[in-house]
């Protein structure tokens, strides 16, 4: 396989050692298919073991390896090195966060704001005595599903120009999560959440630069969530609430076949399978 040598200009900063961040260059032999994260691991294992960066899943699920690659916040594990089409690649830590060391940033502000918007389902029934599952239609699910894929990688806060100057802004990640839970048909705390986000430092601080949605590696689209929160703030929300599933019908529908016989002899069926292939209620 053909190899291409690419120069990685990586921003370095060691606390209690450096006053200012500086760049250090490394030459990495890159093959087709190598991600930026793999190149960083190559540098750490072969060229400079002192370099620090976060990574975990290597498959765009954990959001640990978000960094500022070639002028954009990206996940290092999802960025193909050769697709950047450059012989020199510049990597910096995510902007708008304090740097702990090299490419590792302090994300406490992100998580603090995330917690502020109550990112969980609040429902008297669910918290007091949940007895059954909720019924939720596909249409109700799709109202919030897109925003559910947030990794909390922090790319959106790094891209947001308002975050660059305003330390009190809740930020696109937290506001998108407020929308996610406000539109969940199982949740009943929309008003409580609105009191937190319908503020000067909340949704009205967003001026729709759209960079958060542009940068999001998972298509979460925080900009849309924030604009829809504004719409709900002005026009009100026409939210459909879902309730517990009703009781099961007494007679099984004729088009539902029998459960298959258990493959393990003597296995308990809990009344859901008949174990003998006879007609029974599942």
């Amino acid at each position: 396989m053909e190899r291409k040598t690419i120069v990685f200009k990586i921003q370095r900063y060691a606390p209690n050692q450096d006053k200012e961040p500086y760049f250090k260059s490394y030459e990495v032999p890159v093959e087709q298919g190598m991600t930026i994260l793999e190149c960083l691991w190559y540098i750490k294992e072969n060229l400079d073991s002192t370099i620090s960066f976060r990574s975990s899943c290597r498959m765009g699920i954990c959001g640990s390896c978000a960094m500022f690659i070639q002028g954009r916040p990206r996940l290092a594990c999802e960025t193909q090195t050769l697709e950047l089409k450059s012989s020199t690649i510049e990597i910096k830590p995510l902007p708008n966060y304090d740097i702990i060391k090299d490419l590792v940033v302090d994300q406490r502000n992100l998580f603090r704001n995330h917690k502020k918007v109550k990112p969980y389902i609040i429902s008297e029934k669910a918290t007091s005595n949940p007895t059954k599952e909720y019924i939720q239609s596909v249409a109700q699910l799709e109202q919030y599903l897109q925003f559910n894929y947030c990794l909390k990688c922090g790319c959106c806060l790094a891209a947001c120009p308002t975050m660059a100057t305003d330390t009190n802004f809740l930020g696109p990640q937290a506001l998108a999560q407020a929308f996610r839970y406000n539109t969940d048909s199982r949740d009943r705390a929309g008003n409580a959440r609105f009191q937190i986000v319908d503020t000067f430092e909340g949704i009205w601080r967003c001026h729709m630069a759209g960079a958060c949605s542009d940068a999001c590696p998972k298509g979460v689209d925080p900009a849309m969530a924030i604009q829809l929160l504004k719409r709900h703030s002005i026009f009100g929300s026409r939210k459909e609430y879902s309730d517990y599933a009703g009781p099961l019908p007494k007679n099984r529908r004729p088009d539902i076949p029998d459960a298959p016989a258990p493959t393990v002899k003597g296995a308990r069926t809990n009344g859901r399978g008949n174990g003998k292939g006879k007609k029974g209620r599942r």
């Binding site: 630069a209 960079a211 542009d214």
Partner: peptide
Amino acid sequence: GGNYSIER
């Protein structure tokens, strides 16, 4: 700030 789309 970086290489973003025109809206920024």
